[in-house]
Design a protein around this nucleic acid. Sequence first.
RNA 1: GGCCCUAUCGUCUAACGGUUAGGACAUCGCCUUCUCAAGGCGGUAAUCCGGGUUCAAUUCCCGGUAGGGUCACCA
Length: 448
Amino acid sequence: MGREQTNKIRTRIAPSPTGDLHIGTVRTALFNYLFAKQNGGKFIIRIEDTDKERSTKEFEDDILEGFRWLGLKEDEFYRQSERTDIYKKYIQQMLDNGTAYISKEESKAEAGKEIEVVRLKNAGKKVKFEDMVRGEIEFDTTELGDFVIARSTEDPLYHLAVVVDDHEMNITHIIRGEDHISNTPRQILIQEALGITRPKYAHIPLILAPDRSKMSKRHNATSITEYRQKGYISSALINYMALLGWNPGTDKELFTLDELIKEFDLEKIQKGGAIFDIEKLNWFNREYMKKMSKAELLTEIEKYLPESYDISYEKLEKIISVISERMNVFGDIKKMASSGELDYYFKNPEYDRKNLAWKQDSDLKKVAEHLKKVASLLDGVDKNNFTQDEIKKAIWYYAEEKGKGSVLWPMRYALSGRDKSPDPFQLAEVLGKDETIYRLKNAINKIG
RNA sequence: GGCCCUAUCGUCUAACGGUUAGGACAUCGCCUUCUCAAGGCGGUAAUCCGGGUUCAAUUCCCGGUAGGGUCACCA
């Protein structure tokens, strides 16, 4: 058989390429990965494409790309469609030892067509197994009947392929979603028919939608690709998902993948399903954004900025810190841009002149005076040292004397043309001395 | 419906018989402030219900209720 006998821990994720990489699959993969790695074992990806009708190469690529993006690197890779000879052998073995039989019946797929499916001879006994997160679970397998294990002697169905592969690949621990609990007795029956040793099982809770129903596209994005496109940071996603159904038993929440490998503990896995909370994910993403360097932020932000903006590298660099604290994910830049929230960084704003006056001090004549004074004060600041600190220093005394709102609101409005924006010092620094003074004069002219 | 699993703040969770039931997200208030964001400080908020066991139950047992999963010639 050429199978290497080893007592090292081996886990696997077995996605079927009939859809995009799902959040739940990723969480299961992550737990498998963490458990294998912390024990010096191997993590295996096995594409379960025995359903030729529904499996596609595109989905397979999406799944593999997703794992790569998340940094979950497999040690071994398999594709069930390439292993049909192996399954054939095992089917034959069951036929030979009488634990399975060929049954002539009408095809369910094609009415009227007679086919020969392979059914397991089920003695209908009670099957008991130990689940690492739930304890002992017992099933009466009578009601399962003689279930079908292969479409034909060479075309295995899921349960058979899984059992054979987990055995052939020496999988020691099967960590999978709770939805597989009721599949387990079936697979144990096949194992017993084949005389195969039973792996250890750990069924982890499902990820739920906000209404506690099964997570579907209706509620939130379920596909990892969507999160990637929205500009989530992969390590933030990993960190969040690790804490969905597991916790370290301490207050620590921020974990790198390596830290997770160290601290992960199968014993601490939750039994109940967990709702996927996008708000908390966003918080993690913001935390990870804070850890990024300016250069890293820059490359990310550039991906989402509309091309219509005329951006210099210098300006972009200054904007970064101002806008990063205003977003959850990089994709928010797109939204900010389309709502006009970023326009003032790139072009002279348009606005109604009456808005230049602060609501508590609406004398436009005085507004013009303040703006003139601010402009002349800023004129005295060194162009090459036009930082928010210097800017603030230059006008602070005047602003305090005349009333900060009366001076700063018009200044800020002249620069941004919006009720809500970053403070005038930040804006002025980003815009630079010339543009700042230009906009101030522009506002003064507007008043007349 | 049968079988199986689950049950602590709105959400993720801590507590492995004795705690003022802790933390985080969200939310609310205050501070900071020309506006927004960020930040700082503080508040509201939970053991599903009913029986046991025990000197003592969030914790152990049983029942109920609720939610979920699964009942394919899909995986």
